[in-house]
Design a protein around this nucleic acid. Structure first.
Length: 415
RNA sequence: GCGGCUGUAGCUCAGUUGGUUAGAGUACUGGAUUGUGAUUCCAGAUGUCGCCGGUUCGAGCCCGGUCAGCCGCCCCA
């Protein structure tokens, strides 16, 4: 039997309904914040990711679906969407005037890696990016939007975990501090941390190894090594979040994996998710646009994984809500003709209705309705045709009533 | 990329030291009720035991390989 490629999966049924509900909620919430959608190609030139995500990261090193196309171009199936959005914004000159540019995206991303539950080689992300504003207020706006989004999806107990990773100018001083600290107790850290210390010293801070976390006791604090402007920025964001009543904690060990982050970095944790695993992450990336050949424009954004989010919603809220249409069941050939006509007028009036076209026994139709979760069944037989009515059975209660044909549209529209 | 585990009906799973025709629950189909579901009763159908090879008189069971999934690591969403 043919089956899907490793790490790729088909979405349908109950799980897809959560995806759709999440996407609808995102479009509604983001839209009212003034964000517009952008859809970028799945394929980008290799260079776009090398210059943004960072050559030292595993994403670029070993997790990209990368190949040479028939024209000899080195292309990559995007492993994340921020770089593509930035590339597009530069290419279409969206960032050349003073107005902020607010964009969101929804789409598949690809990483060639070992898979586990909730982690796929084709996965889906929703993200929002704000270009052109460097203020803490713009971050608060973005986080507020994110908070609405998650709250309207029914997630509770959200905690925003924030930190500041400083600027490219202030970071060398911190790197020196962390190296000095590390040197005093180098034997207590794992091999990976020794490697990280060379490639990306910040990442030593969020090693998952318990021993390393213990050894980090008393480590230098990023926010103690900020330049004055970054420190003010960080303090202002915290004050805003406090005023807005958005619960947050400061996590001095929070750093993000991608190279392009500056100042604010954050994650959202949900106790609904069980343990420590973050639901989403993001932050400020002021240098990225320029790095990719655009103007020197600040930016802030975040991305959330739909696969994981859908899984959490399934856990805390159960089955995705579904709107089952009514079912119209004709009995006999003459009724079948009339049923098509009736269904047509109902459809044209915007009523959600499924039509039984198999022509079998009524009990089969009712059994189907029961399986499909249909609440209302309209029955049209000879008796109803004579009197110009339909029999209406409510599946939940088993009760049945009679509606005049002329009232069917209005009554279904109200139910 | 590294380490461990699993794969039997649509789904959840049993299956003895290797032994005849591979089972249960659930779901499904038909009937009891030719115009009334979900409950009940009766009857029925259902499998390349993931795949390929090996050992054996004999393999769902043992061995090798392979594919897929799960868990941990790396990394991240």
């Amino acid at each position: 039997m043919a089956q899907s490629v490793k790490g790729m999966r088909d979405l349908f049924g109950a799980e897809l309904r959560w995806f759709q509900h999440i996407e609808e909620t995102a479009r509604r919430v983001f839209g009212r914040h003034g964000y517009g959608e952008i859809r970028t190609p799945i394929l980008e030139e290799l260079d776009v990711f090398k210059r943004s995500v960072g050559e030292s990261s595993d994403i670029v090193n070993k997790e990209m679906y990368q190949f040479t196309d028939k024209g000899g171009r080195e292309v990559v199936m995007r492993p994340e969407n921020t770089a593509g959005v930035v590339r597009a914004a530069i290419q279409h000159k969206l960032l050349i005037n003073a107005d902020p540019v607010l964009l969101y995206y929804i789409g598949p991303q690809f990483r060639y890696e070992r898979m586990q539950t909730g982690r796929y080689r084709q996965f889906y992300q929703i993200g929002a990016e704000s270009f052109g504003v460097a203020t803490p207020e713009s971050e608060a706006e973005s986080l507020l939007m994110l908070h609405s989004f998650l709250t309207e999806l029914g997630l509770k107990h959200l905690v925003f975990s924030i930190n500041s990773v400083g600027t490219p100018e202030s970071r060398p001083a911190f790197h020196a501090a962390i190296r000095a600290f590390f040197a005093q107790r180098a034997d207590q850290f794992c091999e990976d941390c020794h490697r990280r210390l060379q490639s990306n010293p910040l990442r030593v801070l969020d090693c998952k190894n318990v021993k390393c976390q213990q050894a980090l006791e008393g480590h230098p604090i990023l926010t103690d090594h900020l330049d004055e402007a970054s420190a003010r920025h960080h303090a202002r964001l915290k004050a805003l979040l406090t005023d807005l009543g958005i619960p947050f904690t400061e996590d001095p060990r929070l750093v993000r994996g991608l190279d392009y982050y500056t100042r604010t970095a954050f994650e959202v944790l949900s106790s609904d998710l069980g343990a420590q695993s973050a639901l989403l992450g993001g932050g400020r990336y002021d240098g990225l646009v320029k790095q990719l050949g655009g103007p020197d424009v600040p930016a802030f954004g975040w991305a959330i994984g739909l696969d994981r989010l859908a899984m959490v919603l399934q856990q805390v809220r159960g089955e995705a809500p579904r709107q089952a249409p009514a079912l119209l069941v004709p009995l006999g050939e003459r009724a079948a003709t009339e049923a098509l006509k009736l269904a047509r007028s109902l459809w044209e009036a915007g009523v959600a209705l499924q039509l039984e076209t198999r022509g079998g026994a009524l009990k089969k139709a009712l059994a189907s309705a029961n399986r499909l979760g249909i609440q209302t069944v309209l029955i049209l037989g000879d008796g109803e045709l004579e009197t110009g009515t339909v029999a209406v059975k409510h599946m939940a209660t088993g009760e049945q009533e009679t509606w005049p044909l002329a009232e069917v549209t209005a009554r279904l529209a109200n139910s």
